[in-house]
Computed example of a mutant assay.
Amino acid sequence: MRIQLNLDSIAVLLFCGDLIVDNTAPLSLEEWNDVERKLKSSSRKTPSKLFGMNKDTLIQILGIDEYIAYKMIARLSTLNDLMFALANLENEGIFITTKYEDNYPKVLMTSLKKRAPLYFYYVGDLSITSSPMISVVGPQDLERRLNSFTKNVVTKIYDEEKVLVSNGTKGTDAYALKTFMNLGGKAVCVVSDHMFDKKKTYSKYIKDGRMVLMSAVDPFAYFNVTNALDRNIYVCGLCDNQIITATHINSGSVWFTTIQNFHYHWTKQLVLDDDHYGGNIRLLEMGAIKLTYEDILSLLTIEQIIEKNEVVEEEVEVLVDQMSIYEFLDE
Rank of each mutant, 00 (worst) to 15 (best):
F256H: 14
N241E: 02
K199L: 00
H263Q: 13
Y205R: 11
I243K: 01
Q242C: 13
T258S: 08
N182A: 11
K186G: 10
F262G: 05
S148C: 11
K156Y: 06
F149G: 04
Q269K: 09
T226Y: 13
N224V: 04
V163M: 03
K156P: 00
A187F: 01
N232K: 03
D275K: 14
D218L: 03
I157L: 05
A246I: 07
K198H: 14
V153A: 04
F180T: 11
W266K: 00
V190L: 05
V225H: 13
L272Q: 04
L177M: 07
A187W: 03
Y175A: 06
L146P: 02
R282T: 15
W266C: 03
T169W: 10
T150P: 04
K156E: 06
V165N: 02
G185W: 07
I233Q: 11
N167Y: 12
E285D: 15
L238W: 02
Q260M: 11
N167D: 15
N167K: 14
M195Y: 03
Y222W: 13
T169H: 12
A216F: 07
N167S: 14
R210L: 09
A187T: 06
L213W: 01
N280Y: 03
M181A: 01
N250Q: 12
K200T: 14
K178F: 10
D218M: 09
K198A: 06
D218Y: 01
K204A: 15
Y264V: 04
L238K: 03
